[in-house]
Simulated assay, not measured.
Amino acid sequence: MAKLKEIIVVEGKDDTAAIKRALDADTIETNGSAISKSTIEKIRLAQEKRGVIIFTDPDFPGEKIRKTIAEKVPGCKHAFLAKHEARPLSDKGIGVEHARPESIRKALREAHQMEEDVPEIITKEALMEAGLVAGPMARRRRERLGELLKIGYTNGKQLHKRLMAFQIDKDTFQEALMKVLQEE
């Protein structure tokens, strides 16, 4: 098995163990959401030398870590797991450490880079009209849309930003939205 070129940023040692079960790769552990300056420097160096894939848990602390790293170390790729792929059999907790090796490999294969200052392709109004920002089904729709588009779960405000950052085109968005609506 060939070693993954990029270095994967994860939250802790259990995540590293899960990555190692799935493939041959190097990791940097943040050890929680209070990321030290030395860890940021390590990630910055890894990005310059080999590239970085941020692979955090699909929960609030994981998103906070992802956002912090993306702000301080631009150009990283992002890998996402759907919440159902990151739950243990006991259904207690959520995280990369609970994912099956196939799910980890798939998420890393589909990792992509966020772009800065990109034109608005899908408007906030379109998200409102699609029932993705407000309404009884909005949260579930956003969660499923994030899975289909491989951009992770977001709240209503983050969805617009993430669609722009990952340059999701209208056709791809519409196709995923139709699938979400058909599943209801």
Rank of each mutant, 00 (worst) to 15 (best):
K13F: 13
G12Y: 08
A176W: 02
A107R: 03
E147H: 04
L4K: 15
F173N: 02
Q174H: 09
I151E: 00
K161P: 00
P119D: 08
A18S: 11
I122C: 06
Q113Y: 08
K5N: 09
E63Q: 12
I35H: 01
A46N: 11
S38Y: 10
H78N: 00
S38R: 15
V52T: 15
K179T: 10
S33E: 06
L4A: 14
E48F: 07
A82T: 12
K83F: 08
L149D: 00
I19D: 06
A111G: 02
D57Y: 12
D14M: 11
E125G: 12
M114F: 03
A46H: 14
R141P: 04
T27V: 08
S33A: 09
R162P: 00
A107P: 07
E175P: 04
D14A: 13
R141G: 02
S38N: 13
L181S: 01
E102M: 09
M1I: 07
K13H: 12
A2E: 15
G95L: 12
K72M: 12
K72D: 11
I54S: 00
R21L: 13
I35C: 01
V52I: 13
P88S: 11
A18F: 07
A46E: 05
H98D: 04
I40S: 01
F173C: 04
G75Y: 04
K42R: 15
K77G: 01
K150L: 02
E102Q: 09
D117E: 13
F166P: 00
V9H: 11
A126I: 03
P119N: 10
I7N: 10
I94C: 13
A126C: 06
K20Q: 11
A70N: 01
A70I: 00
A138C: 07
L148N: 02
E29W: 08
A2H: 08
I104R: 09
T30A: 02
L89N: 09
K64I: 10
L145K: 03
S33Y: 12
D91S: 11
V118G: 13
E129D: 09
M1W: 11
D171I: 15
E85Q: 15
P101Y: 04
V133D: 03
K170P: 03
K157A: 07
N31F: 12
E71M: 06
I104A: 05
C76Q: 00
A176T: 04
L45W: 08
E115L: 14
L81F: 09
P74A: 06
G95R: 09
E147A: 04
K161T: 14
R50Q: 12
Q182R: 15
H98V: 09
A25I: 04
F55Q: 10
K124L: 14
P101H: 07
